[in-house]
Simulated assay, not measured.
Amino acid sequence: MTQIDGKTAIVTVEGLQALLQTIQSRGYRAIAPTVQNQAIVYDDIESIDDLPRGWADEQDGGRYRLARRDDDALFGYSVGPQSWKKFLHAPKLRLWTAERRGDDISVAPEAQPDDRLAFIGVRACEIRAIEIQDRTLIGDLYVDPHYQALRARALIVAVNCGEAGGTCFCASMQAGPRVERGFDIALTELLDGGEHIFLVETGSDEGRALVAQIPHRAASDREIEAAKALIERTASSMGRDMRSDDLNELLTKNLEHPRWDEVATRCLACANCTLVCPTCFCTSVEDVSDLSGERAERWRRWDSCFTMDFSYIHGGSVRASAKSRYRQWMTHKLATWIDQFGSSGCVGCGRCITWCPVGIDITEEVRAIRGHDASAEEPR
């Protein structure tokens, strides 16, 4: 564990409030989980009273419900429908504005954001998702300047998972439940015998500076062991599992597997899975103008490989069937993403399972293809 002043720290609930106030005093916009519209969603908060105190979530294929816990845990849920992607890689973004004055036309690019975002309550799988988006959007020849500007100033206060969700399989993807890196501050929430405390680790100079300004004490060996045991219990109680070490070969050798036809009969091509996924990055661009023709704008918005128009080229869609679109999404996410970016595009958060209206389960689809590997029957 990363130590603070030579020791692992403990803060109380009041200390967490002090941490939030310190973060805000340093010019950060604090964004954290809140309860809205019967779901856990990320939004601006003013105090820890805005956190989902005493709430848990029940998740399964095509099912999400909030339920009351029997304690006052602030982070006693798994993940909701939103990811931090919505703040770093905005669903809709104006790219430039053009104006005509007589014969003169001026084009002004959208100014880069200067927000300092503090994400509070980030899970291990979500940190891994941010790392994947970093590789995609700023880690290659072509850099997204808006994402880069926001990411460079973002503060991450992570939370180790104390309870796995019904559709979680982050352990299978080596993406959780313990936060290993990519954070400024990491919390483990402990409720034992009426005591409500947080074990604190730091991962950056900014994190250490923040914690140094709030009341904290050294953690005991018992508290450190309790935190480790909590995370180990979470890892052993995943709602789903999926073997992931051979997915690239398995899926690319089974592009004509009969399972693709079967899943296509259930898939609505609604794009829910891509919209809730924390790593999907596909966008499209559209131009709009006013009625006078004096002003035009170009906007970028989230898109999905499940839409017919996404692969529209020269008068037709490359992937016209639901079968081809589902196969494209799943094989890219789990297999060819590795060829393209060097890692899987899946972090095992389970959102695509929970928020699929018909409960299609990506882990079950892999299991079905693995159970009858058509490529294994090809003559040698």
Rank of each mutant, 00 (worst) to 15 (best):
V159I: 10
I214V: 13
F183M: 07
E195L: 11
Q213Y: 09
C168Q: 01
G165T: 01
I224Y: 03
G182E: 04
K228E: 15
N160G: 13
E163P: 01
P177L: 10
A226P: 02
G182C: 12
M173D: 00
D205G: 14
I197G: 00
E189H: 09
A186L: 11
E206M: 14
D184G: 03
L191E: 06
T202N: 12
S172G: 10
D221L: 15
T202A: 15
L199A: 10
I224L: 15
E223C: 14
D184V: 08
Q174N: 12
A209W: 10
G203A: 11
L199F: 13
F198R: 01
V211W: 13
G162T: 01
R217Y: 12
D184A: 11
E223R: 07
G194P: 03
G207W: 12
A209M: 09
T167P: 08
L187D: 01
R181Y: 11
A229M: 13
F183C: 06
C170K: 00
C168G: 06
T167A: 15
I185D: 02
G165Y: 07
G203Y: 11
S220C: 11
G203V: 06
A219H: 06
K228L: 15
E223K: 09
F183Y: 14
A219V: 06
K228W: 15
G176Y: 11
G203L: 09
E201V: 05
A164K: 01
G165R: 01
A186H: 03
A218I: 00
V200T: 04
G207M: 09
D205F: 15
C170L: 10
D221V: 13
A218G: 11
T188R: 11
G166P: 06
Q213H: 09
L190A: 05
E201R: 07
A219G: 08
E180I: 10
V159R: 01
E201K: 05
G176K: 02
S220N: 04
E195S: 13
G193K: 04
G207I: 05
G207D: 05
G166V: 05
E206K: 09
A175F: 14
V159Y: 06
R208W: 13
K228A: 15
D192I: 12
G193A: 11
C168N: 02
R178P: 00
C170I: 02
S172P: 08
C161P: 03
Q174E: 12
R208C: 13
D184L: 14
E189T: 02
R178K: 11
H196T: 04
C170N: 01
G194F: 00
R178M: 08
V200C: 10
G182I: 07
R178C: 00
G162R: 02
G194D: 03
F198V: 05
S204K: 03
D192S: 14
Q213I: 02
M173L: 13
A229S: 13
E189D: 08
S220G: 13
A164R: 01
G176S: 07
S204W: 10
E189R: 03
A212M: 06
I197K: 08
F169Q: 03
S220H: 07
M173S: 07
D192T: 07
A158M: 07
A175P: 04
A209T: 00
I185K: 01
A219E: 03
I185H: 05
G193Y: 13
M173R: 03
A164L: 08
A219M: 10
E225V: 11
C161W: 08
G193V: 02
P177D: 09
E195I: 05
G182R: 00
G203S: 06
I224H: 09
L210V: 01
I185P: 04
Q213M: 12
